[in-house]
């Protein structure tokens, strides 16, 4: 008998005769949370993770991106394909597209990445990337030390159940809540380990 067959047989013997269980879903599900004030709540919650947050009208987005990249002192920034055109032009900053030349080691030499996101969660201050347009493959937002993420106000949902309902599982998903951090030293949170140590979120209203 294969291990597969043996494990399945053991399970069937172990639970034989046990009653099944109904799943009560009395918690706040998708659509149950109030959807007002989400931009403010999201911005506050992202800020709680010690990420940098800006809320700007759409007309001010390009200018804000430019100001952030300049302030960062960035020279080379990766921008995944599908990031909304026209790309901002930032003096002294080269905006590079992703391509076959950008292996992990090369990515380690760029100064940051500029992306969009798929969904954002207000209650938890989370942005979710699904490798869609403007987000690119997962390594792009991981290896560089700086991530500037543009979130449209209409992408912000109230709670975790709303986000799960909007996302599609067959895409690779990365849920990001603040910069990389650890609680491994005396159980105190410290920002900045292997992922981007600076997360800057730009909410466009």
């Amino acid at each position: 008998m294969s291990s597969r067959e043996r494990i399945l047989a053991r399970i069937r013997a172990a639970v034989a005769g046990a009653p099944d269980v109904e799943i009560p879903r009395a918690y706040r599900g998708a659509g149950d949370l109030p959807d007002t004030g989400l931009v403010d709540l999201f911005a506050r919650r992202v800020g709680d993770y010690r990420a940098v947050v800006h809320v700007v009208p759409e007309t001010g987005a390009a200018e804000r991106i430019s100001a952030s990249l300049t302030a960062r002192g960035a020279r080379r920034i990766v921008v995944p394909g599908g990031f909304p055109e026209p790309w901002p032009s930032v003096p002294g900053v080269e905006l590079m597209t992703d391509g076959p030349g950008l292996g992990a080691a090369e990515l380690d030499t760029v100064d940051g990445v500029l992306t969009t996101c798929a969904v954002a969660v207000a209650e938890t201050g989370t942005i979710v990337l699904d490798a869609g347009p403007g987000q690119g493959r997962r390594a792009l937002t991981l290896v560089p030390d700086y991530h500037l993420c543009v979130v449209r106000a209409d992408q912000i949902v109230a709670g975790v159940p709303d986000a799960v309902a909007r996302l599609v599982p067959d895409r690779p998903l990365t849920w990001i809540s603040g910069p990389s951090a650890t609680s491994d030293i005396e159980l105190n949170r410290i920002e900045g380990v292997h992922g981007p140590r600076t997360l800057e979120v730009l909410v466009v209203t």
Partner: peptide, 15 residues
């Protein structure tokens, strides 16, 4: 925490 910094989800052979 309200949410941990990173959660990865993938299905099968990815990228």
């Amino acid at each position: 925490e309200r949410m941990n910094p990173y959660t990865s989800m993938w299905t099968g052979a990815t990228e």
